[in-house]
Design a protein around this nucleic acid. Structure first.
Lengths: 206, 206
DNA sequence: TTAAGCTCGTAACTAATGTCACCGATTTAT
DNA sequence: ATAAATCGGTGACATTAGTTACGAGCTTAA
C-alpha cells in the first residue's frame, strides 16, 4: 500500500499530521457496503487502498453506477453531506478490499480555514465529480445502450488497469439499469465486430 | 429588482461591499446566450434578476436542459471553471431579461480565505447543484419520457410561478432530447387524463 | 452426488421511442 | 398581400429496449 503522505502529497505536511492524528482507519472487504442511501454521514472519507463504486438508487432498490473512487481521492458527497450532517444520497460499495481514512467532520471547517491545501483539495474533488456527472448525463441523455455499454467496459478496463473484466452480464445490466438479455445481445454484437471476446464470468477487451 | 444585499443576505456586509466595489453588471435580454460551451470563463456570475437555463450540449448541437438559476444563486460551474480559467462545459441562456453580477475570478481565492460566508456560499452552491444533478440522473436513468415530461412541466411551472407554460412542443422536445412528435403524443395523453390543457404556444397545468 | 442456483444464449413478443410523411392553421417577414 | 416559417395533429412504420420463456453448462452447498 502506498503511504498516506505519498497518496495525498498535495496536502501540506502540517495538515497531513493533523489528519493522521485525528483519523481512524476502516477496512472493508470486497462487496461490503461502505455507506447506504439514507444513512447519516458523520465522517469524510479518504481512500487509501482498494476501489469504491458509487451508486444512485431508486425506490425499487435498483443500483445505477455513477463513478469510481480510487486511492488518493475523497468521496465528494461525504464532503458535502458531512458538512451538514445530512443523509447520504448515494450508496458506496467496496469492489476490492479497501482501506479508508475516516475523518470526523467537525475538523472540516477548521481545516478549511487553516489549510489552503485542504480547501483546494475539497474544491478539486468537487470539480472532478461534477465533471464526471456531466459526462454521465451526456451518456444517458444522448447515447444508446450499445455506446453506454462500450463506455462502461472501457472505464472498467481503465480503472482496473486490465483488459480482462471479471463481471457477469447480469451485473453490467444492473449497473446500467438495463436487463441481462439486452446486455448479452449487445455484447454478442460487439464480439461479432471483434471488439471483445466473451467467456463465463469475464470479458476480454481486444 | 430586489437589491443585492437582500438577495445575498447570507454574505457578510464587508464582503458585500467588496463585491459591489469589484463587480461589473451585465444585462441580457430573453434568448441571449450568456456563455457558450468551450468559451473561457473569466468571471464568477451572481444572478441579480431574471432567469437562466443551463444546458449540456453534444457534438451535434443538441441542448439538454440541466437546471435553472434564479436570482440569489450563482453558477456553480462558473465557480469551478473560473478558479482554473477553464473552458465552460455548459451553455447558459437567459430565458427572461436577466441582470448578472460579474466578479473577476482573481478575487475568489482571496475571498475564500478571508470571508467565511463566501466559503459557505460556494460550498452550498456546489452542494445544491450536485443534488440537482443527482435528481436529473435519476430521471434519465430510471424514468420513461412521460414521467420526465411531467417533471419538466412541473419544474417549469414552479420556477416561473405560473400554471401557464409558454413554450412550444418543439422546444420541450429539444430540452428533453426527444422529438416533437413524441412530446405531442404524450401531451395529448396527459390532456386526455385531465392533467393539462393544450393551446398554441402554451400549456396550462390543471 | 444431487439439487439448487448462477451464467449465458437465444427466440418471440411487447412496449417505448424515434422517424417520416403529410395536413391545416397561424404567425412572421418581405 | 403573399410567401415562408412555425406550430401542432396524426397515421404508418422503424428501431431500440425490455420481457417472457426455455435450455444447457457450470458452480456450490447440503
Amino acid at each position: 500500500m502506498q503511504p498516506f503522505y505519498q497518496l495525498y502529497s498535495q496536502l501540506e505536511p502540517e495538515l497531513q499530521e493533523e489528519i493522521e492524528k485525528n483519523a481512524t482507519i476502516k477496512t472493508f472487504t470486497t462487496g461490503d457496503i461502505i455507506i447506504r442511501t439514507g444513512q447519516y454521514v458523520k465522517s469524510t472519507m479518504l481512500i487509501l487502498e482498494g476501489m469504491v463504486k458509487v451508486f444512485r438508487e431508486n425506490e425499487e432498490g435498483d443500483e445505477f453506477l455513477m463513478y469510481y473512487i480510487k486511492p488518493g481521492e475523497a468521496c465528494a458527497l461525504s464532503l458535502v453531506c458531512a458538512s451538514k450532517m445530512e443523509a447520504s444520497k448515494i450508496m458506496a460499495k467496496a469492489v476490492e478490499d479497501t482501506t479508508i481514512l475516516m475523518v470526523p467532520i467537525q475538523l472540516m471547517d477548521e481545516w478549511m480555514a487553516n489549510y489552503k491545501s485542504w480547501y483546494y483539495f475539497v474544491l478539486e474533488t468537487y470539480r472532478n465529480r461534477f465533471e464526471e456527472l456531466l459526462v454521465l448525463i451526456d451518456h444517458v441523455a444522448f447515447r444508446n445502450m450499445d455506446e453506454r455499454l462500450q463506455f462502461y467496459l472501457n472505464r472498467h478496463s481503465e480503472v482496473n488497469q486490465t483488459k480482462k473484466i471479471n463481471i457477469s452480464h447480469q451485473q453490467i445490466a444492473d449497473e446500467l439499469n438495463s436487463s441481462r438479455e439486452v446486455i448479452s445481445r449487445l455484447l454478442k454484437k460487439m464480439e461479432q465486430r471483434g471488439l471483445v471476446s466473451l467467456h463465463r464470468n469475464y470479458i476480454e477487451m481486444l
